[in-house]
Design a protein around this nucleic acid. Structure first.
Length: 840
RNA sequence: GCCGGAGUGGCGGAACUGGCAGACGCAAGGGACUUAAAAUCCCUCGGGGGUUCGCCUCCGUGCGGGUUCGAAUCCCGCCUCCGGCACCA
């Protein structure tokens, strides 16, 4: 009796089997090559979404593939478990963040298990666990001792909705990366990681990643680090001992400087500005982009190159955080200065002209290109490039400046005024000042009895027994730091923790040496600068304190595309779920809906598909297969309800085939004999092994690998065996197909493997090998062109000499029509492929 | 504005170093089975023209040029879309 494919039953059976045998447990095995396959760990928001499914399906294929190829594979999973949503849930629903988080973890873990991913769950980590975050604290202290962590009062990005500070990387278009609220500026004392100390290294090392990382991620990081070479130069302040140091990349325009601008929070601004109210007003608009405003300080500076006396201004668009916090303003050659000069009627002086010609005066806009210097004293006539070089040298010789490099990258502010995060291990003592918590007192535990209100003040400050402590150095009364760390600290090194997840005392160097770096990292592009840059920095910082030997954490990076789906919109009721629509009309109001553009699946746009629904309806194998088949991994994937049906159909057909031919498929033969009629099928088997292997190994093209398996199955279905020898070939074909399919659809592969009489587990089978002689076709179709146009085809034995191919081509009937009576100028022969006859 | 990527049937996408454009899948149309439907199976499926129904032929990979015996693929110039950066001196 033929049994019907029941995914639920099959999947549960094999998930239980894997779990009982702990099949995916990993240990360091020096006798085998290692492979560290890592997918970005999820935030435990409650349920997994299609983005997770795609990310983890890709990772699982790679992990299985490498295992079957004899590698010792580390494939772990864990939870990025600290963060705001837990705290917000607490404020809204009164449930403790810890409970909320651990409940979510338990549920999502069960979902991941139902998807059948091959994680070594023995290595599971959660960043909110004290044995995890103690290392955040330990690293913090070590880096503090090395001067890579410091505290300073500064303007910070403040999200009023999240009631906390954001790092620069977390502000997108002036809005919070998480909730989209407009970000404002606040002045607060903050802890910083000195990522800028590694700016040059982080930039230079990008070159080593080329090839293994996608080009656009490298470009984004390069942009973000934003290196620029220039000159620092002192402009003495008239009637004062002070001078203003400016930074410029365009020293060639210095003779065109008609004023100097200070950032409002520049130390000299306060001192020089006469108009207090004016200064305050500029300060209030600091960093705003809508409008350039400024005030004249009433004082003058001297241009060191021509001794010209130019006014000193304070302007809101000059940033203290970049360069020296002061600029020389050259309105003729800088658009920002041009706009500022126009507004305040400051002189505009042309000192650069294009190599050919002049500039139309008065200028309508700044001329920012390189060119030739005019009105520039001894430098007149030089090219911009030369002038920059010479002026830089001149300043260095005179000791009034130097050539320098500036970076757009800022230090990473990690203080957060929130509860659900790692406590910063610092103690403030009136007598000893700022004292780090001694190593032996770690971890500084996050207290659980806390009232969360979301008022914007650190919740920990209200927990008296937490705040009140004694100073580790003088034993006097002292207070603890009450801010917690940015959660990106947690994820900046979690890949190291997987190597020794349970060792309470140390990150074992042997384990790190064996497993690091991550050989393949997989995740979304949204972390191109944030997480990926922080991790590269952190790994280097930890290298410098002797924790790890590698500098780059991720050798290869694959950024998977988004999962998208069509959106539906009602003019009255906004976004709609498909089930809220009937015949293009909104069920509620009857108005016609518009099928909007396809966009990334999101709850707010109601275009989501719940993975759990798919598992229940089609099973994990079908879901995984479709998501791998529908698009190459880096491309955005357009969800299609019919598409998944197609993949389900394929698995059904495969199942039915095995069930129908079960008897003949379980006959084993000692030696395979491939007769005439079975040779094409047997060749297809070897061609498919080759194609699937190379698609996975070299190109990560899972869609074409799946297509190749479908092709093989089509050929299997069309094959009619006429002998036992043929049946043995058929069995061989099915057997190989099942093994090839195993990384994609492990459950059905296990089941079919067993049903053709093989012993489990198919996942422990060696990856099949192909034989080149069976990949080659004995006959090839020769394409014959005349003047590059297809004029005929001939089936010829492979490996014919050129002469013969040429002859066959020339004698082809249809070809004759096109060449008769014409002069043959040339014949190009590509062996095994084509002949092109050139006539005039 | 600067940087990165992409434009191929009705749709998702194939085509490896320049060598048969459209693999595989979806949708659509036709047929078989069935009382019927679902499921399954078979056939057709870029467009135009011709046909003795074997096939022949012209056009076709965003647009315009170029290199080449031969271009989806390489080069030059545009257009469109997506992503990143952007008052960074």
């Amino acid at each position: 009796m033929k049994e019907r494919y029941n995914p639920q039953q099959v999947e549960q059976k094999w998930q239980r089997y894997w779990q009982e045998r702990d099949l995916f447990k990993t240990e360091e095995d020096p006798s085998r090559p290692k492979f560290y396959c890592l997918e970005m760990f999820p935030y435990p928001s409650g349920r997994i979404h299609m983005g997770h499914v795609r990310n983890y399906a890709i990772g699982d294929v790679i992990a299985h593939f490498m295992r079957m190829n004899g590698y010792s594979v580390l494939h772990p999973m864990g939870w990025d478990a600290f963060g705001l949503p837990a705290e917000n849930a607490a404020i809204e629903h009164g449930v403790h963040p810890k409970k909320w988080t651990y409940d979510n973890i338990a549920y999502m873990k069960s979902q991941l298990k139902r998807m059948g991913f091959s994680y070594d769950w023995n290595r599971e980590i959660a960043t909110c666990h004290p044995e995890y975050y103690r290392w955040n604290q330990w690293f913090f202290i070590k880096l503090y001792e090395r001067g890579l962590v410091y505290r300073k009062e500064s303007f910070v990005n403040w999200c009023p909705s999240c009631s906390t500070v954001l790092a620069n990387e977390q502000v997108i278009d002036g809005a919070c990366w998480r909730c989209d609220s407009e970000v404002t500026q606040r002045q607060l004392p903050q802890w910083f990681f000195r990522i800028t100390a590694y700016a040059e290294e982080l930039l230079e090392a990008l070159d080593e990643l080329r090839g293994g990382w996608p080009e656009h991620v490298l470009a984004m990081q390069e942009n973000w680090i934003g290196r620029s070479e220039g000159v620092e130069l002192d402009f003495p302040v008239e009637g004062s001992e002070e001078s203003i140091r400016i930074f410029t990349t365009r020293a060639d325009t210095i003779f065109g400087a008609t004023f100097v601008c200070l950032a409002p929070n520049h130390p000299l601004a306060e001192e020089l500005a006469e108009d207090r109210d004016g200064l305050q007003k500029v300060t209030a608009h600091y960093g705003e982009t809508e409008e350039k405003i400024g005030i004249f300080t009433g004082r003058y500076a001297i241009n060191p190159l021509n001794n010209e006396r130019i006014p000193i201004w304070v302007a809101n668009f000059v940033l203290m955080e970049y360069g020296t916090g002061a600029i020389m303003s050259v309105p003729a050659h800088d658009q920002r200065d041009f706009e500022f000069a126009k507004r305040y009627n400051l002189p505009i002086k042309v000192v650069i002209v294009p190599e050919s010609g002049t500039l139309p005066e008065p200028l309508q806009e700044a001329f920012e290109d390189y060119g030739v210097l005019v009105n520039s004293g001894a430098y007149t006539g030089l090219s911009s490039r030369e002038a920059i070089e010479r002026i830089g040298r001149w300043a260095e010789e005179r000791g009034i400046g130097k050539r320098t490099v500036n970076y757009r990258l800022r230090d990473w502010g990690i203080s957060r005024q929130r509860y659900w995060g790692t406590p910063i291990p610092i103690i403030y003592c009136d007598r000893c000042g700022t004292v780090p918590v001694p190593e032996k007192d770690l971890p500084v535990l996050l207290p659980e009895n806390v009232r969360l209100t979301g008022t914007g003040f650190s919740p920990l400050a209200t927990v008296e027994e937490f705040v009140k402590t004694t100073c580790p150095s003088c034993n006097g009364p002292a207070r603890r730091e009450t801010d917690t760390m940015d959660t990106f600290v947690d994820s900046s090194w979690y890949f190291l923790r997987y190597c020794t997840p349970r060792d309470g005392e140390v990150l074992k160097p042997e384990a790190l040496r064996y497993w690091m770096p991550v050989d393949q990292y997989i995740g979304g592009v949204e972390h191109a600068v944030l997480h990926l840059l922080y991790s590269r920095f952190f790994t280097r910082a930890l290298r410098d304190i002797g924790v790890v030997e590698v500098s780059e954490p991720f050798k290869r990076l694959l950024t998977q595309g988004m999962v998208c789906k069509e959106t539906i919109r009602c003019p009255e009721h906004g976004w709609l779920f498909p089930e809220e629509v009937e015949g293009d009309r909104c069920k509620r109001c009857g108005r016609e809906v518009s099928r909007g553009r396809t966009e990334k699946m999101s709850k707010s746009k109601k275009n989501v598909v719940d993975p759990e629904y798919l598992i229940n309806r089609y099973g994990a194998d079908t879901s995984r297969l479709f998501i791998l088949f529908a698009a190459p991994p880096e491309t955005d994937l357009l969800w299609s309800d019919q598409g998944i049906e197609g993949c389900h159909r394929f698995l059904h057909r495969l199942w039915n085939f095995v069930e129908t031919h079960r008897d003949s498929l379980s006959i084993k033969v000692r030696e395979l004999e491939v007769r005439e009629g079975a040779a094409p099928l047997y060749r297809k088997v070897h061609q498919t092994i080759k194609k699937v292997t190379e698609d996975i190994r070299e190109r990560y093209q899972f869609n074409t690998a799946v297509a190749a398996m479908m092709e093989l199955f089509n050929e299997i279905s069309n094959f009619s065996p006429v002998s036992d020898e043929d049946r043995a070939v058929l069995r061989e074909a099915i057997k190989n197909l099942i093994v090839l399919l195993a990384p994609f659809c492990p459950h059905i592969a296990e089941e079919l493997w067993q049903r053709i009489g093989e012993a489990p587990s198919v996942l422990e089978q060696p990856w099949p090998r192909w034989e080149e002689e069976w990949v080659r076709e004995p006959e090839v179709e020769l394409v014959i062109q005349v003047n590059g146009k297809l004029r005929g085809k001939e089936t010829v034995p492979a490996g014919l000499p050129e002469e013969e191919l040429k002859e066959r081509a020339l004698s082809n009937e249809n070809v004759q029509r096109f060449i008769s009576g014409k002069e043959i100028k040339k014949v190009i022969v590509v062996r095994g492929r084509l002949v092109n006859i050139v006539v005039n």
